[in-house]
Write a protein that binds this DNA or RNA. Structure first.
Length: 558
DNA sequence: GAAGACTAACCCAAATACCA
DNA sequence: TGGTATTTGGGTTAGTCTTC
């Protein structure tokens, strides 16, 4: 069943700073809010009225949009005289939906941060507007008629519907296979590998860095450039075939790269000294996933063929219990390629101010990542706000969150039917995520070659660093106490980053710091490392002074 | 002389094929 | 899988023709 692209028209938008209410219209004209009394800061209702007077149908907020802690009232839940709320989304990223009481006009409140992430400070309303324009032009340059939709996920989905080659008509999965994928496929690998409270206590996992012995050291942050775009090649899709143990075993030997998932029971080899390869769900699903790495530890789990191949190549003992084979097709190739070109076009655009360029590049990244995520989405949730507990429907009682005087509850739309079912492709998301997990372990570099019989040489990734330096894994990022040479640009000796999409490259380096004992500490260090940059590491590796050009590229490389 | 219609040439992206 | 070479084909453009 082929997805049918739908037509959208651009939404008239005003771009406002959340705190001051000052901003710009789509055409760049300055907007100042009408504020009653002597207040400096506009209320939400005043922002709505300002936008309404300009005939806008959307407000994009920039600047410090407040985050809501437990028990606090959400900033979207506040009296808005003249406006009726309906269908808010209070989680992240927040969306407010309002209807004007007299005209019936609809107005949506969103945050620019949903699209644009910027490492150094916030965008101004006008910068956000420029980034929006640049992003839509870049997207349009690779796909005629493409528009930015209401969210990056919708934009990605829509772009996919347009990018599916005419000759491809992927069959949706059977219900039972889709359900199995949902239950057994994880997303990003997030793992902390030092001793301390964030270490996995299951007994099958062991930390690699003992903070008792080394509490201080370097902190390097390496992650993949536009990683998902390089993982979309020739994915498997429906129809899917269930395989018995014998058939699965057979498939594994005849075509090791088949698009398939396997139910396996594995044992970590006696000599294994680094991080685990295969993801296993915790007994309590709420606790997420872990990656057993203690020699002799056993586990039973569903894994993608690429992860299994990595384990088998690494000498793991694996027994295959059953399998599912997908049909290979070029479902996402064109889509990912277009996004890659759109991003390329933006990074090369020297006319854009650096913050705008970086923001636009981050928006393309959001479309890619959230587009992938949307394939696994089983209908979206809506938040409803009522002012009395009695108005909450019984079936939604479990989702109620108190916001001051208000009660917010969530409902989930029914499983997608009709056209929307063509967009439900959990097998695509599952494979990209699996490939991502495999890629962060073993990643080709500019130095890599595939040699017959020898596998990949000079690979990068978590499996190729000294285990004693490995602090953790986070999605497509790894953190280590020393800089892996392959993560440096090819311009320095031993460097393996040639600027290609999909390469893992050094994003930040702190030469000496207190090593993180928790994931939260680690995330703070990542920010610090990113802010500190890579210059020091480059100099240490023997590079000359970086040119202005390189510095400019780095800035948009997020 | 200008505007529109038509056509051939060309370019580049997309699709395909194949290899290590 | 990742990479490269080749084929295919859609779309743009420059050039020419036609008509008013």
């Amino acid at each position: 069943m082929r997805p049918v692209p739908w037509k959208v028209r651009p939404i008239p938008t005003v771009w406002l700073d959340h705190t001051t209410g000052i901003g710009v219209t789509d055409s760049g004209a300055r907007v100042t809010p009408v504020i009653e009394g002597r207040r400096k800061r506009p209320t939400l209702a005043e922002l709505l009225n300002t936008a309404h007077n300009l005939r806008a149908e959307r407000i994009m907020l920039t600047g410090k949009v407040p985050t809501t802690g437990a028990g606090e009232t959400h900033w979207l839940i506040t009296p808005t005289p003249g406006w009726t709320e309906g269908g808010h989304w209070l989680s992240s990223p927040p969306t407010g939906r309002f209807t004007h009481d007299t005209t019936g006009d609809k107005l949506e409140v969103r945050t620019a941060a949903e699209w644009f992430t910027s490492a150094d400070g916030d965008l101004t309303p006008d910068e956000a507007r420029q980034a929006w324009v640049a992003t839509s032009e870049a997207i349009r340059s690779v796909a005629r008629d493409a528009e930015l939709l209401k969210s990056p996920a919708a934009t990605g989905t829509q772009l996919w519907a347009q990018s599916l080659p005419r000759t491809v008509d992927p069959e949706p999965l059977d219900e039972d296979v889709a359900e199995l994928l949902h239950r057994t496929a994880g997303q990003h690998r997030i793992e902390h590998l030092t001793t301390g409270p964030s270490a996995c206590g299951c007994g099958g996992c062991r930390p690699l860095v003992d903070l008792g012995a080394t509490s201080h050291g370097g902190f390097s942050y390496v992650d993949g450039r536009f990683m998902y775009a390089s993982l979309c090649r020739e994915l498997g899709t429906g129809p899917a075939r269930r395989l018995t143990a014998a058939q699965a075993e057979e498939l594994l030997t005849t075509s090791p790269y088949a698009r398939a998932r396997f139910h396996v029971e594995f044992t970590v080899p006696e000599w294994w000294d680094t991080l685990g390869v295969l993801p296993v769900a915790h007994d309590d699903v709420q606790d997420g996933w872990h990656y057993p790495n203690v020699p002799g530890a056993r586990g039973r789990t569903w894994v993608d063929g690429v992860e299994l191949k990595l384990a088998l190549d690494g000498g793991w003992d694996v027994e295959v219990l059953e399998g599912i084979e997908f049909t290979k097709a070029r479902v996402l190739d064109t889509w990912a390629d277009r996004l890659r070109r759109a991003r390329e076009r933006l990074t090369q655009d020297r006319d854009l101010p650096a913050p705008v360029r970086a923001a636009a590049v981050s928006a393309v990244r959001a479309v890619l990542i959230q587009g992938i995520g949307a394939f696994a989405s089983r209908g979206r949730e809506t938040t409803h706000v009522v002012w009395s507990a009695r108005e909450v429907p019984a079936h939604a009682a479990a989702t109620v969150v108190r916001h001051g005087d208000a009660f917010a509850y969530r409902t989930r739309a029914a499983r997608p039917a009709g056209q929307a079912a063509a967009l439900y492709r959990p097998e695509l998301a599952a494979q990209v995520w699996s490939r991502g997990r495999a890629r962060v372990l073993e990643c080709p570099t500019a130095l890599s070659k595939r040699l017959p019989g020898a596998g990949m040489t000079y690979a990068g990734g978590a499996l190729s660093v000294d285990p004693a330096t490995l602090l953790g894994v986070n999605g497509d990022a790894i953190y280590t106490t020393s800089v892996p040479a392959w993560s440096l640009p090819v311009t320095v000796p031993g460097g393996g980053d040639d600027g290609e999409v999909g390469r893992m490259r050094l994003q930040g380096w702190l030469a000496s710091t207190k090593l993180p004992s928790t994931t939260a500490e680690r995330n703070r260090l990542r920010q610090r490392a990113e802010a500190a940059g890579v210059e020091e590491a480059l100099v240490a590796a023997g590079a000359g002074e970086p040119t202005a050009d390189v510095a400019a590229t780095d800035q948009v490389d997020a």
